[in-house]
């Protein structure tokens, strides 16, 4: 035998004139507590209105308080009393009242979906009866409750959150792309700078070579002049003529070298494929296919080994050029 004190609901029950009515009162208050968008005063008034015919003979306040505290033992006690003492007619009227209390504004909260089903099971009301009753009272079918444990539910009920999340994700993506773009530009600049430096170096080397050449020619010219002075005039004239021609050729060569600058790797690779600078990517691909077919070592298999070796060297050069262009273009 437990020596615990009587709980508030037990005291209310003992004081009540009708235990069934008190138990029903508590369960209806429980349903009302789970109704949303209703003020406390509205709840009390609604409860008083529904239970106007009850014979309990005590205040509603304590019962409402117990329902608010969600006291599981009190609700269990009320459910037991209801099950024990309700006739089938009374059960139907209790379900009727609880549906009315739960859906005055036409909206059944998710918790009340489950509470109504619990009451129906408790009072032996079949699902068809319950849904018929619900339809008659509210004019809407008794649907299955929505499931807030699913992603889809929140996509429907809180789209703001998802649009904001999508926006944030897009912004992040954008930032990442920008960073990548910057990094690539920086790398490109570095590459260009390196190329420019290389070209500079090459040009300097060429200039140095040209200067050496010039001094040598100068010396040769001096010697020739000495010889010229020594030799006959006719021969001297011819020599001068020759030299002038050579000089002209050299000048031409130098000029060509200057105009063909920059002979950077891209244009050299394009030249290997027989293309002018500025050819498009598809041009490169077509040219590569043609060149590869022409210079493939297998074509020279029937001829000599030496030719195969030459062809494979050519093919290798073409392939290197193509690979380089595909990477950079």
């Amino acid at each position: 035998m437990s020596m615990a004190r009587f709980s508030p609901f037990e005291l209310v029950l003992i004081n009540s004139r009708s235990q069934v009515d008190t138990a029903t009162l508590l369960l209806l208050a429980w349903v009302l507590v789970h109704r949303q968008h209703v003020s406390e005063g509205q709840r009390r008034r609604r409860l008083a209105q529904v239970t106007a015919q009850f014979r309990h003979g005590h205040e509603l306040g304590p019962v409402m308080g117990i329902a608010h505290s969600q006291n599981l033992q009190a609700i269990q006690l009320a459910a037991e009393i209801l099950r024990k003492e309700c006739s089938p007619e009374r059960s139907l009227s209790v379900i009727h009242q609880s549906i009315a209390v739960a859906t005055d504004d036409g909206e059944l909260s998710m918790a009340n979906h489950y509470i109504l089903r619990f009451l129906a099971d408790l009072l032996n009301v079949t699902p068809t009866t319950l849904s018929t009753l619900f339809y008659e009272l509210t004019g809407r079918p008794f649907s299955t409750p929505e499931d807030p444990s699913r992603h889809v539910y929140w996509e429907q009920h809180n789209p703001d959150y998802f649009t904001q999340k999508a926006r944030e994700a897009a912004a992040e993506q954008q930032a990442r792309e920008d960073a990548e773009e910057q990094a690539r530009q920086k790398a490109q600049q570095r590459e260009q700078k390196k190329q420019r430096k290389q070209q500079e170096k090459q040009r300097q080397q060429e200039e140095a070579q040209a200067r050496q050449e010039n001094t040598r020619q100068e010396r040769a010219r001096k010697q020739q002049r000495d010889e010229q002075q020594r030799r006959e005039r006719a021969r001297g004239e011819q020599a001068k003529h020759d030299q002038a021609r050579r000089e002209r050729a050299q000048g031409e060569r130098r000029q060509w070298q200057r105009t063909s600058l920059p002979p950077d790797r891209t244009s050299r690779a394009l030249a290997v494929l027989g293309l002018p600078p500025g050819a498009s990517r598809s041009d490169v691909r077509i040219a590569y296919r043609r060149m590869a077919q022409l210079h493939h070592p297998d074509r020279f298999y029937t001829e000599s080994e030496h030719k195969v070796a030459l062809a494979s060297a050519r093919f290798q050069r073409i392939k290197n050029a193509y690979d380089y262009l595909m990477q950079t273009y």
Binding site: H34, Q70, L72, I75, Q76, A79, E80, R83, M110, A111, Y114, I115, R117, F118, A120, D121, L122, T126, P127, L130, P148, S149
Partner: peptide, 27 residues
């Protein structure tokens, strides 16, 4: 929101277990 409903449903599950209603037609 989820926790509120979770709490109510845990209560109902407990009530059903104690009242022998764990195999009800609505459950």
């Amino acid at each position: 929101t989820y926790d509120t409903l979770h709490h109510t449903l845990s209560d109902i599950g407990c009530l059903r277990a104690r009242l022998g209603l764990t195999h009800g037609a609505h459950w």
